[in-house]
Write a protein that binds this DNA or RNA. Structure first.
Lengths: 208, 208
DNA sequence: GTCTATACAGCGATAGAC
DNA sequence: GTCTATCGCTGTATAGAC
């Protein structure tokens, strides 16, 4: 008992420098992607010296993964999504969950940042893949008792990624400014079809 | 008729320098996006001097739009797509046309280039928007006699863009290596639902 | 039409003073 | 813990010789 309550327990910097850097990085990466963001720029936004960023995080890459770390684990929600209603609407529920999550103001920069950077940076591309088809979607697709789970997860993931880009990045109207539950309603049936429907165009497509 | 067949009709450079630059630029932009591509690199690939690129095209931006110009006008195909079969499968036909077009080896770099760059570059974002929702898709959605044509076009465009990213950019399996007509079969019903179905989760295509 | 040379700016990263 | 200074490199773009 050598001291008071602030003994050795990681006294943060004067005004939480590390946190300010992370906030600024999240915003910058979300707005301009990995390549479009410079460390000097992040430092200016956070009112710190550029060298400090290299001090806290070793490289720009590590700053990126630290700033883009998801605050919640989407995999944990899969059982709840499954159990929360009738199986013939599990796709709708999942779409509502994902869109609702992505729309939260503290999550949106993470989505746009990862998506914006996935085009160029291999690390970000991996994060995008994990975020969707190799993550909760695959678990969900596997839980539903239908064949071709990986294919179903990929198709549903492609659908969700397309909505993310159209809504958050390219800002296509009227999709961009629309309440999230409405978006979930619109794309829910498509997700449901991919997850649990009969794959392929069903009936009379003889040609092609 | 004053001369032979090659009168004044634009004698190309020694080995079609301009064309080689465009080819190299198409490849580079398609592979690494706008930001990830440097003029020096394109010049090296085309075996020309970097200054020549600035000579033919004024800036990197203009090189981009020149290299990414679509060789075909997708709008011209809309009437054929509509007339070519029953209206209840127009979405499937459109999906097949688009995927078939994007899969052509000379078109694929254009798709990946525009999509990869749309994240960062505003000009590319505009091109992506025009390519989809403001282009043939809107015409198609308007031609179908259902309300909310812009919304339908946007939703279908988001679906197609997601497939493009998953298949060509992030390369999610098994979607990435799969014959194009199979892809069209898989996503056709979703496009059809967005274009002509009852929007919203309640009715119609929950179970197919 | 083609190339050399270079201006000018920005980048990530590091060393070391305080 | 914070900042100054700078290295080494790459980018776009331009001026001007051949």
């Amino acid at each position: 008992m050598t001291g008071g309550p602030r003994r050795t327990g990681r006294r943060p910097g004067l005004a939480d420098t590390r946190g300010r850097i992370l906030d600024a990085a999240r915003h910058a990466f979300g707005e301009r992607g990995f390549d479009g963001t410079s460390i000097r720029q992040v430092a200016a936004d956070a009112n710190v010296d550029p060298a400090l960023i290299h001090h806290y995080f070793r490289s720009k890459q590590q700053l990126f993964v630290a700033a883009m770390a998801f605050p919640v684990d989407p995999s944990a929600v899969v059982p709840a999504v499954i159990a929360d209603g009738p199986p013939e609407h599990v796709g709708e529920r999942f779409a509502a969950f994902v869109i609702g999550l992505w729309d939260r103001p503290e999550v949106r920069p993470l989505v746009t940042g990862v998506v914006r950077s996935a085009s160029t940076d291999p690390v970000a591309a991996d994060m995008a893949r994990r975020l969707l088809t190799e993550g909760p979607l695959l678990a969900l697709a596997s839980a539903i008792d239908r064949p071709d789970a990986p294919l179903r997860a990929t198709l549903a993931g492609a659908q969700l990624m397309g909505v993310a880009i159209a809504r958050y990045v390219v800002r296509m109207e009227p999709l961009a400014s629309m309440p999230p539950d409405e978006v979930a309603d619109l794309i829910g049936p498509s997700i449901q079809g991919y997850l649990a429907g009969d794959l392929g165009a069903s009936s009379g497509r003889s040609q092609r």
